[in-house]
Design a protein around this nucleic acid. Structure first.
Lengths: 152, 152
DNA sequence: TCCATATAAATCGTATCCGATTAAATCGGA
DNA sequence: TCCGATTTAATCGGATACGATTTATATGGA
């Protein structure tokens, strides 16, 4: 899969793999963000987590994980780092001590309101297609996750 | 950036970020491939590297890196693992001992000719749009890399 | 020829991802 | 009430990414 149906069977070229297009586009986004995020001392994943946290206060790790498609094994170290940087607060929910509640600090909110990636819209070169591509790729993701979850 | 131009300034929701759509679609592809690749003992990155190597024999690490948008720091450990698994051969070029030449072994070629991801085409749910999306995302990647390289 | 420069790959440290396991807290039926 | 099953985070180990450095080789001008 991840290759065009049209070329199935032969021409097993990387350029025909959708999975590789996504994989390499993800690397490209990481590199495009790097110089912008370096200025504020954030990594790409930390930045994405921070954006998700700006959605709503007092989210649990699980709830954040559902938004990001990640679990506590990945998130816990990142969240501890963000807390250590003074950008978020973590505390056990008194009503259920198993859960950890997450909230941005004022510093974290200020940082995220800077619209750090704004200058990259033009760099995508997508123009008016931007929202279409965004929706198509999101749909692709949801389809893949549904199919993966279906047969496991 | 990575957010739709239309929503810039407010509604800083993750769902409006193109970078997040790509990031999460990449995770989704990795998970969709996982059960298929587990059967043959490959990781996702190893699989992608193997496909790129099937293009052509006697590629150098740098040449492979250009195709994959990676460098020797990432590739060397992966290539050593693939060699250890008996799927590729690595040897210094006698004409220039700085370079390492890479080729698939018969076992490596047999493995890659199985069309391991074929069953995932349907899972993308893209239908006839598959090749269009593949091209659009590749173009997005190239635009981002060009823009990133431009101002560094 | 000699050596400073350049190039290719490898190495190292940090930060993700992720499967598997663990630890702590909660829940629910006997 | 009590204890086994469940749930939530955290921990651990293996495999990427990647900036920075190192090592080995090659090149070119004095």
């Amino acid at each position: 899969m991840a290759r065009s149906p049209k070329t199935a069977g032969k021409g097993r070229k990387l350029s025909n793999f959708l999975c590789f297009a996504i994989y390499s586009a993800n690397l490209a986004f990481g590199r495009a963000y790097k110089p912008l995020l370096d200025k504020v001392g954030l990594t790409y994943t930390q930045y994405i987590a921070l954006v998700a946290l700006s959605d709503e206060d007092e989210q649990t790790v699980s709830a954040l994980g559902e938004k990001l498609f990640l679990e506590s094994n990945t998130l816990t170290p990142i969240l501890k780092k963000l807390e250590q940087m003074g950008l978020i607060k973590r505390h056990r929910d008194p009503a259920d001590e198993r859960q950890v509640r997450l909230s941005l600090t004022p510093a974290g909110r200020r940082l995220i309101e800077q619209d750090l990636g704004g200058s990259l819209i033009e760099a995508t070169g997508l123009g008016d297609d931007f929202p279409v591509v965004q929706k198509t790729v999101s749909r692709l993701r949801d389809n893949l996750l549904r199919a993966t979850k279906a047969d496991d």
